[in-house]
Design a protein around this nucleic acid. Structure first.
Length: 316
DNA sequence: CGTGTTTACCGCCATG
DNA sequence: ATCATGGCGGTAAACA
């Protein structure tokens, strides 16, 4: 069964808010045929002109229950959309029946207007955070995030961040490996550093597609397992000594350090986007216990996991 | 918080 | 001679 996505646009929507995610789903569908089906809809069916003047053909709003994911674009027209009681009622019905709701950019304004984000963590385009904080004080706005997940609700920052959001959804649905391939195909960062996050050396490394890219992918896909230097060397068909030397020459860091970085980055990503507890993240990322993860964070990032964690009301 | 044990790293040297 | 490879042992760090 494909995931059914309903993308909502409206007069004055930001073209890239919807075009970016659709492109990501298109690539995902090509990699995993039958994984996604999407439909673009609008309050008024027909020609919908974006803020750029480029128009899209949209269907009428679909009935609740006919889609799994609702994806709302942003743009100047969002204020008019959010002000319509009829549309708020439609959104409430959709909320009751779909698996998750996502928004790009100022699309979160509509969700907030309908009260769906009350008490939840969410984000929006940086230029609107001040305004939205005033209008929707019940929402816990995270101004410095690329995207935020709180339970069934996924919101993302401005415009191109919709692609990051789509990659996160794809990662959730089809696995990290597929999401990474989609990112590579789109030539964008997978899990790009957001907010206070620093630039990732290992993301560069995987992009370099060097001799050890496959090995690193293998590790990344099995973070919960143990990966000693000896194991890695065997997998690379080299003696431990030669492997360590070649690895440093290729990547600039030592093998064990690379594994540690992969663990820590995955853990930080998970903690930053919320939805998982420290204990669970530590286990999933291959740390024997949260204490070990904490020490790793201090070594690599200079801050403990609690500093990057978002506490959510309804972890899923 | 110390302490024994394991692991990672690196310099050095041998081999082919 | 140069280079890729690999083994050994010491040191430091991380783990239990």
């Amino acid at each position: 069964m494909p995931h059914r996505i309903a993308g909502i646009v409206f007069p004055g929507f930001q073209l890239l808010d919807m075009a970016g995610p659709v492109a990501a789903f298109e690539v995902a569908e090509r990699i995993v045929p039958g994984s996604y089906r999407w439909r673009i809809a609008a309050p008024q069916a027909g020609r919908v002109v974006s803020s750029s003047g480029v128009a899209w053909e949209a269907a009428a709003l679909p009935r609740a229950g006919t889609f799994d994911t609702l994806l709302v674009a942003g743009g100047d027209g969002i204020d008019a959309l959010a002000a319509e009681p009829r549309l708020q009622r439609w959104l409430a019905r959709a909320d009751a029946q779909c698996e998750r709701i996502a928004s790009v950019c100022s699309g979160s304004h509509w969700l907030a207007s309908a009260g769906l984000l009350d008490g939840r963590c969410a984000t929006t385009h940086w230029s609107r955070t001040r305004q939205f904080t005033r209008r929707h004080p019940q929402v816990r706005w995270q101004p410095d995030r690329i995207f935020v997940r709180d339970g069934r609700f996924w919101t993302s920052a401005g415009i191109s961040a919709g692609i990051d959001l789509a990659l996160a959804l794809i990662g959730h649905d089809l696995g990290e490996a597929v999401a990474r391939r989609v990112a590579r195909q789109l030539v964008v960062y997978y899990r790009r550093p957001g907010g206070q996050s620093q630039f990732s050396q290992l993301l560069e490394m995987e992009r370099a597609d060097g001799r050890f890219a496959g090995l690193l992918d293998h590790v990344r896909g099995r973070l919960a397992e143990r990966h000693s230097v000896g194991d890695l060397a065997e997998r690379a068909c080299m003696s431990p000594r030669h492997f360590a030397r070649a690895f440093v020459a290729e990547t600039g860091i030592t093998p064990a350090r690379a594994v540690e970085k992969l663990r820590a980055e995955a853990a930080r990503s998970a903690l930053e986007s919320g939805g998982e507890g420290v204990q669970q993240v530590a286990r999933r990322c291959g740390y024997a216990n949260p204490e070990q993860m904490r020490r790793s964070f201090m070594r690599l990032f200079g801050m403990p996991p609690s500093a990057v964690r978002i506490r959510t009301l309804r972890p899923s």
